[in-house]
Design a protein around this nucleic acid. Structure first.
Lengths: 243, 243
DNA sequence: GAGTGGTCTAGACCACGTT
DNA sequence: ACGTGGTCTAGACCACTCA
C-alpha cells in the first residue's frame, strides 16, 4: 500500500473521508473486481483511525454494493452486476414525470363480491365484499392515469362518501380509517390502450401504456389495497439505477 | 414505554433483536408515522444495551426508510411515501423473468460516425467513430430481447472479432479491454413492436414491449456504453418495492 | 443550558475459514 | 494456531435545537 497520503480535514466526518478515499481506489481501477483488499488492521494503520471508524466506512461501501465481506476470509471488491435479469442484480428506481395530483375524477365507487383472481390478490375468501374504485388521475390539466382500486369493504365503511376526488386514497385510508401503510409492491408491464382507456385518458387507442399492478400492505402480511393503474407512456418513464 | 419484556437470545446478534423489536412497534402502529420515539438513553436502558448497539439498530432502520433522525431534535417515525411519482418516493426494483443468456445472435457489428442525438448520449463530439452492435438475446430457446449497443470505437479495437455471440458484452469490456464498469442508469418506456423487431423476436407486430435505454459508466462520468433494448413484455416484468 | 443525535476511540471477546 | 471480520461495551467530545 503506497498511497500518496491521507490528510484528513476537520469539518468532515472521518469515516466519510475514509470512504471517499477507498471509493477512489475502487473507481480508478486500482483495485479490480474480485480482488481482496487489505484487512482491517492494515487499513486502520494506513488511515490512522480506530477500527470503529474504519468499519463504518467499509460498512457503507458494503451497503452500496461496492464491497463484499466474509468472516474468516477477507474483504473483496464486488463484481458489478449491471446485467438486467441477472441474479443479484437490483437497484433503485424512481418514476420520472409530473406529480400525480391527489384525487381525480371518480368514475365509480361501488361494492361487489370478490371472485377468484381478485380474492387471491387480496388474500380474502371468495365472495367477500370489496370496494371497487375507478378514477382518472391528473398531472396538471392532463389525464395521466386510469386507476382501479380494490379494498376489502369491512375496514372502510362509507368510503364512497370520502373526498376521493381531492385527496390521495392512501391518505384517506391512513387519516380517516387509521390504517398504517407500511410497504407496497408493484409489478410493471407494457401494454396498450384499449378503446375505453383511450377515451378516459384522451389518447388514441393502442397508445403504449404502463400497466402497474400494486399491492399495498398495512401490516406485515395484511393487504390494504390492490390497484391496477394504466399510466400514459408519453408522460411517465421509470428510471432505474444500478450500483 | 411499557413493553412486556425484552429477553434477548444468544445466537442472534443483539442489534438485530433490538431492530426487530423496534420494527414490531412500528409495524403494529404502536408508534404512528410522524411521532417521536424515545431518545437513545431511554432505549439503551430499556433494552439493556450499549449505545453503540442501539445505534446500529436505529441506523439500520433509518437506512431502510422507517425512521428519520435529526440532530438536536430527536428520532421520528418516517411517513411512508408509497405514492408513485411523489417527491422522495423511491424503492428497489428487480427484473422478473428468465435470465438472459450471454451473447446471442449477432445481427451486425459495424462502425459509424456518431450523429447528434447519439453523440450527446455518449458525451462525445459529433463525427467520432463508434461501434454499433445489434444482437438478439435469448432466454432459453426463445428470443427475448433485441439490443443495439453503441460504444466509442477508440477504446475497443477489434470488438467485432470478440466472442460477442457467447459472452456478456459487459464481461468482454471488462476482461478484454480492462474497463471497470461502475454503474448504470436505465430509462424504461412502454412501446410496441414494429415489423422489424417483431420479426427478430418472433412475435406479432404491435406486441407490447419495454424499451430500455441504458447508459453504463466506466468512471464517475465516463460513458462506456449506450444501449437500447426492446424487451418482450410477455416474458419480462419489473418488480418494484417501496419502503 | 439541557437534551438531542453524530463522531471517534480503545479494548475485549467471539465465530468462522484457512493453514 | 492464526488471521479474518462480527459484535459489544464504556466513555468521551462535539454540533445542533429548543426553551
Amino acid at each position: 500500500m503506497s498511497t500518496p497520503a491521507f490528510s484528513p480535514q476537520r469539518e468532515v466526518a472521518l469515516h466519510h473521508q475514509v470512504r471517499q478515499d477507498l471509493l477512489l481506489r475502487l473507481r480508478s481501477g486500482a483495485w479490480q473486481p474480485g480482488a481482496e483488499i487489505p484487512p482491517e488492521p492494515a487499513l486502520c494503520a494506513h488511515y490512522g483511525v480506530s477500527r470503529g471508524t474504519l468499519r463504518r466506512a467499509l460498512g457503507d461501501l458494503v451497503n452500496e454494493g461496492y464491497l463484499e465481506r466474509f468472516r474468516g476470509r477477507g474483504t473483496f471488491v464486488a463484481q458489478p452486476k449491471l446485467e438486467s435479469g441477472l441474479a443479484g442484480a437490483f437497484g433503485r428506481f424512481t418514476v420520472i414525470g409530473p406529480s400525480l395530483e391527489p384525487g381525480g375524477r371518480v368514475l365509480s365507487c361501488t361494492t361487489e363480491r370478490a371472485q377468484e383472481p381478485l380474492a387471491a390478490m387480496l388474500r380474502i375468501r371468495t365472495g367477500t365484499e370489496v370496494w371497487r374504485l375507478e378514477r382518472v388521475r391528473f398531472a396538471g390539466e392532463r389525464p395521466a392515469a386510469l386507476q382501479t382500486s380494490y379494498l376489502p369493504r369491512k375496514p372502510y365503511p362509507g368510503l364512497d362518501r370520502q373526498p376521493l376526488a381531492t385527496r390521495f386514497l392512501l391518505e384517506i385510508m391512513g387519516e380517516r380509517y387509521g390504517v398504517t401503510l407500511v410497504r407496497a409492491v408493484e409489478y410493471v408491464d407494457p401494454t396498450r390502450a384499449d378503446s375505453y382507456a383511450a377515451k378516459q385518458l384522451g389518447i388514441k387507442p393502442a397508445t403504449p401504456l404502463f400497466r402497474v399492478e400494486r399491492t399495498t400492505y398495512a401490516g406485515e402480511d395484511r393487504i390494504a389495497e390492490y390497484r391496477v393503474s394504466l399510466l400514459r407512456g408519453d408522460i411517465f418513464r421509470y428510471r432505474n439505477e444500478f450500483r
